[in-house]
Amino acid sequence: MAGGSAKGGGGHAEGVAGVRLYVWIYILLLAFTGLSVAVSQLLMDVFGHTPVTVAILAFSTIKATFILAYYMHLKYERIWIRMWLYLPLAIFVLVLIGVGPDIYLVLRDLWTHILTFAGVSGGVHH
């Protein structure tokens, strides 16, 4: 804690989280990675593609949460720093909501009509 800043001008890395914790989280991350790979390789045929994808992405989110919270110290930050994670996520959701319906329609049309309509030649024969 240099500078004697009583409000904790950033000296949060020590005291709150030690090396031991970091290593434990590392082991956890490795375990989840192994789990993801195992699930994707073994259970894909059993449960089908979509549930496995959702499960693996959920594992990824758990891993990402650990990294963000402990390795990137967001757990110990105030809202003024955490905001810079939440705002981009909010923007992402916003863009998805705004763009999603259009792009979904557009791309669905694209892939189905691509051969019959976009190229005039595809659909019309003379």
Binding site: G3, S5, K7, G10, E77
Partner: peptide
Amino acid sequence: EQYEWRGAPVARLAFWLFLAGEII
């Protein structure tokens, strides 16, 4: 650490601003 705003040192504040852009 003496430039800070409510417990957020300026270097960390600025870097998270940058990271926000990267995240998007």
